[in-house]
């Protein structure tokens, strides 16, 4: 329970303060200010090129890897700036995990994929590592399917299982927030369903932020929705942010309404 006495679902896990993002001379995001609540699922939706993924990648500083990137404003994790110079970037990325659009398992065994993160962070004990691997694979409901082939290459798994393995790999470092960048877009409907169920379970412990192209998915899984769009200067902005049910039943902004009723995008 937080100090303020709020339920975790009401407390802000991540806050962005007038965030601006430039890739070289290209202005990608303008003045994004929003608060993301703990233990809930927040969906970022909007047409292609509106800066959804760019925003998501700011939350664990993945954009830092791109040369020429400039970030203005600030992003707070539990009230602390993650862009503060004194912050250890590995600790931030450990606390804010990420699952990508395409399954990107490492070309090594299933077991090694899971334990690589904990090993980076100093877990050496073998039985402890085995315990982590079992519990993470169980959390993503993959344990029964792979428990006998843990030493086999992760690349031999079908895509849906690979993506669940990627989620398990992210869970293995005990993150507090999980970012999912269109993590179902490369999967078949059945795998998508499994991952959506998984998200709902994980949201009891973690704060989950997803970027999705599918409005149906946003409605199905998310508690909060953020609608983004490019403005007249072709810069990504946050148009509307509210509870998902409210946004989809009664959008406040005309642009949101046009988008969710399928008039464009």
């Amino acid at each position: 329970m937080s100090e303020s006495g709020l339920k975790p679902q009401m407390k802000y896990k991540i806050e962005t303060k007038a965030v601006n993002l430039h890739y070289g001379s290209f202005h990608a995001l303008k003045d994004v200010t929003m608060g993301i609540r703990d233990c809930s699922i927040t969906a970022i939706i909007g047409p292609s090129g509106c800066g959804k993924s760019s925003l998501l990648r700011l939350f664990n500083r993945t954009n830092d890897l791109i040369p020429g990137v400039k970030i203005g404003g600030d992003i707070l994790l539990d009230g602390d700036s993650i862009y503060d110079k004194s912050k250890d970037i590995s600790v931030i990325r450990k606390r804010v995990g990420m699952v990508f659009q395409k399954p990107n398992v490492f070309p090594m065994s299933i077991y090694d994929n899971i334990i690589i993160g904990p090993k980076h962070h100093g877990v050496k004990n073998r039985s402890k590592l085995e315990e982590i691997s079992e519990s993470c694979l169980k959390q993503v409901a993959l344990w029964d399917e792979v428990k006998d082939i843990l030493k086999k290459s992760a690349l031999d798994l079908p895509a849906g299982q690979q993506q669940r393995l990627c989620i398990a790999r992210a869970l293995a470092v005990e993150p507090e927030v999980i970012l999912m960048d269109e993590s179902c877009s490369a999967l078949d409907p059945e795998s998508t369903m499994k991952i959506e169920e998984l998200m709902a379970n994980l949201a009891q412990k973690y704060s989950i932020i997803i970027v999705t192209h599918s409005m149906e998915q946003a409605v199905r899984v998310s508690d909060w929705s953020a609608f983004m769009m490019i403005n007249e200067d072709k810069i990504g902005t946050l148009v509307e942010y509210s509870e998902t049910t409210k946004m989809f039943q009664n959008p406040k902004d005309q642009r949101t309404e046009d988008y969710i009723t399928g008039r464009f995008g």
Partner: peptide, 15 residues
């Protein structure tokens, strides 16, 4: 080696 491997590694907090 694909960028996606590096991104995944960094996202686990690897140096």
């Amino acid at each position: 080696v694909p960028l996606s491997f590096r991104e995944a590694s960094y996202s686990l907090g690897a140096t």
